[in-house]
């Protein structure tokens, strides 16, 4: 194979890495920073995709679909935090697991009630649905490059907010010592409902961007949760930098593994995770707490 073949594969890997980061980013916030195990992470990915599909089919415009679905999802996240999650901050992880598992069942039933069991796809709007010629016989879909671009922006945005702004400072402080933050006069409850809702919005945003590649259907969320756990555990829980790096590693490893060692490609990622965790049980950028 020529050099261009490997370069395009590298591009495929980076592109997949961006996608994995976006899918896991919501969980980095909610689990990594708030310490809430949200098993329904994948369900919110699904809800986001369905909301965007729904608005898109009403307005006939994917951009509107996503722009209107985002605040709707924020509202849903906010309500769920107020009505359910907020009672769990003082409880152990097991209660969180129980509650969020219940959410999975409720959300998947609501999905079938509202939108049925069919598969629904949409067409990607015209400037984004084409492909760019890379060599004489290799073309690259524009929409995938677009997703990578948006994922890159999101990653940068998250990094900026958490590391460089006052809100980010509060979030980081809250993750290491909630009580101290309260004593200093900061409204921790409000802070947490915002962080949880943003986490939900990020999960759903990933669904909104990805579903036009494929379709919305019952069970579309099935593999999202495990993938997200792998990304954030490998990267180090609570570290956005770590999640980004591990998403890239996994993306590139899966791409080359799938092409050159198809029989063991599923194992490669978990093998990498096992090796890294033996060397650094806290993950690449994680800290012991």
């Amino acid at each position: 194979m020529e050099l261009s073949f490997y370069l395009i594969q590298l591009l495929n890997g980076i592109q997949l890495g961006f996608l994995l980061f976006l899918i896991a980013s919501g969980m980095t916030l909610v689990f990594g920073i708030m310490g809430i195990i949200n098993l329904a992470h994948g369900s919110f990915y699904m809800v986001g995709a369905y909301l965007a599909y729904w608005v898109t089919s009403l307005t006939d415009n994917l951009l509107w679909g996503i722009l209107l679905a985002l605040p709707l999802l924020f509202l849903i996240g906010f309500l769920i935090e107020k009505l359910a999650i907020s009672f769990l901050y003082h409880r152990d992880h097991l209660s969180q697991v129980l509650l969020t598992y219940g959410l999975i069942l409720i959300l998947s039933s609501l999905q079938i009630i509202f939108w049925g069991k069919e598969f629904h796809g949409i067409d990607i709007p015209s400037p984004l649905n084409g492909s760019i010629a890379l060599t004489d016989h290799q073309n690259y879909p524009v929409y995938r490059l677009f997703i990578s671009f948006i994922c890159g922006l999101t990653a940068f945005g998250m990094y900026f907010v958490i590391q460089k702004t006052r809100l980010g400072m509060k979030i980081r402080a809250g993750s290491s010592n909630r009580e101290m933050l309260r004593i200093l006069g900061i409204d921790v409850n409000k802070l947490y409902s915002i962080v949880f809702s943003v986490g939900i919005v990020l999960a759903g945003f990933a669904g909104m961007l990805v579903f036009p590649l494929n379709a919305v259907y019952p069970g579309m969320e099935e593999n999202i949760l495990i993938m997200s756990f792998v990304v954030i555990t490998l990267g180090g829980i609570g570290s956005i930098r770590g999640a980004f790096l591990s998403a890239m590693m996994i993306g590139i490893l899966e791409t080359f593994g799938g092409v050159f060692f198809p029989e063991i490609s599923s194992f490669l990622v978990f093998g990498l995770m096992a090796l890294v965790l033996m060397w650094r049980p806290q993950g690449l950028f994680g800290q012991f707490r």
Binding site: M1, F5, I8, Q9, N12, G13, Q15, L16, H137, Q138, N139, R144, N214, E222, N223, E254, T255, F256, G258, V259, S266
Partner: peptide, 14 residues
């Protein structure tokens, strides 16, 4: 049941 095919398509095109 993964549905990421981009890397395989690069191979098929070649």
């Amino acid at each position: 049941p993964k549905s990421e095919f981009q890397s395989f398509f690069t191979k098929i095109a070649a």
